[in-house]
Design a binder for these strands. Structure first.
Lengths: 216, 216
DNA sequence: GGCAACAAAAATGTCAACAATCTTGTTCGC
DNA sequence: GCGAACAAGATTGTTGACATTTTTGTTGCC
């Protein structure tokens, strides 16, 4: 009996295609505005065209993909102007999460935060911007986690997914990690001091600086 | 030639079903947790089952509907706890919009705001909570409009759609319109004074009061 | 050579039948 | 009478073929 299975399908297949596509877009494999042909993607992921189509519809709702009637799907390009608007929203939503995190973080979570902060210091000292960027992302995610504000967390995940390209571009800018590091350390300190007000201010300051950097 | 057209279909049909369903949910025609049977809805709206299915998928992404595999779609029920979390997010996002609106509103827009405020005063004086609720909604939408913050506006529309049931319940509570009115007038004044800080504070105060009311 | 009309190919959109799954009602054994 | 197994009906999920539309390539005319 030959092991030539046809394309898998069903819910599992759609999920596979969805995560695969999302990651491919995130790591920049798909150039912006590149056409996403259903047939090609179906073959590449070994699923049916229907699964790919369903995944593309989901990604459209997430704002990562743009679909035009009878003209297929493309990777959506996020202009600098829009990236700024998105970051403004992140500013207030992450401010909310940081304030909540500061109010209710446990001692265990606080020491985890401190550890993250030290790892970031080390990454900058070692001159490893990619490691730093990953830790950066992890820190923000952890703070969201602590906040327990499920609604804000979901909104932020959507918004962040749309910024992958800009985030990447920003991380490699010389001098940027050092500035960002100080802002993050201030944020960590505010949370460790259980000071919601200061945490919110720190987030605002940090993301205001990100907005400046976005605009070059 | 008989005028018995079958169910219409295509993009137009899906849009028709989508808006129809959204409005039906908004006006509470569909009880919470009620099953949404694809076949019934298809007949009701005169479209094919495929169009209904597509619309339900979209509404799921919008958070208005819940779909379980092989078990169909239901109107999603938003718990009080979740309504509070949603309102917290509204607080910061509408605060952002109000601040922007205060910074950049034109004279024409300011007088439109004043007119809205006076209409609200009249609605409360006349004891018409439904009119007031509609004006309330209109005011918030107009401020979002002035802000020009497209990203925040879209997020807020999503969030607001999920609150229809709670909003309705809140509007009919005795004494609530009077309190709400004062908060709105303060917000309008702050924007008219081109004071972003005060506008943001007014929004926060207003929605904090909404959260208190939600919790009863 | 350039352009418009046309033809071929590719890609997306749509549908109707079929398959899989869940729900409900009934029967049988205890 | 009660519960479990079973069968019938209802509902959703999936597929593959087909229709529509866009795109590409070609031809013929000026």
């Amino acid at each position: 009996m030959p092991y030539v299975d046809g394309p898998i399908s069903g819910e599992q297949a759609k999920q596979h295609a969805l995560t695969g596509l999302r990651e491919a877009i995130a790591r920049g494999e798909m150039a912006p505005a590149q056409r996403l042909v259903e047939g090609e993607l179906a073959e590449r992921f070994g699923v049916t065209r229907g699964s790919i189509r369903a995944a593309l519809i989901d990604l459209t709702a997430e704002g990562l993909v743009e679909r035009i009637h009878n003209r297929g799907a493309r990777v959506r390009v996020v202009s600098v102007e829009e990236a700024v608007a998105i970051t403004e929203c992140r500013m207030v939503l992450e401010g909310l999460c940081a304030a909540k995190a500061a109010a209710q973080a446990t001692d265990e979570q606080l020491s985890e935060l401190a550890a993250l902060g030290q790892a970031m210091v080390k990454a900058v000292a070692d001159g490893e911007p990619l490691t730093y960027s990953a830790l950066n992302h992890e820190l923000h995610a952890y703070i969201r986690d602590i906040s327990g504000q499920q609604v804000a967390v979901e909104l932020l995940q959507r918004l962040n997914a749309q910024l992958v390209r800009h985030r990447f571009q920003l991380a490699l800018r010389p001098g940027r990690p050092q500035k960002s590091l100080n802002e993050h350390l201030a944020l960590i300190e505010a949370i460790r001091a259980h000071d919601p007000e200061a945490a919110q201010v720190a987030v605002h300051a940090h993301l205001a600086s990100v907005i400046d950097a976005l605009r070059e």
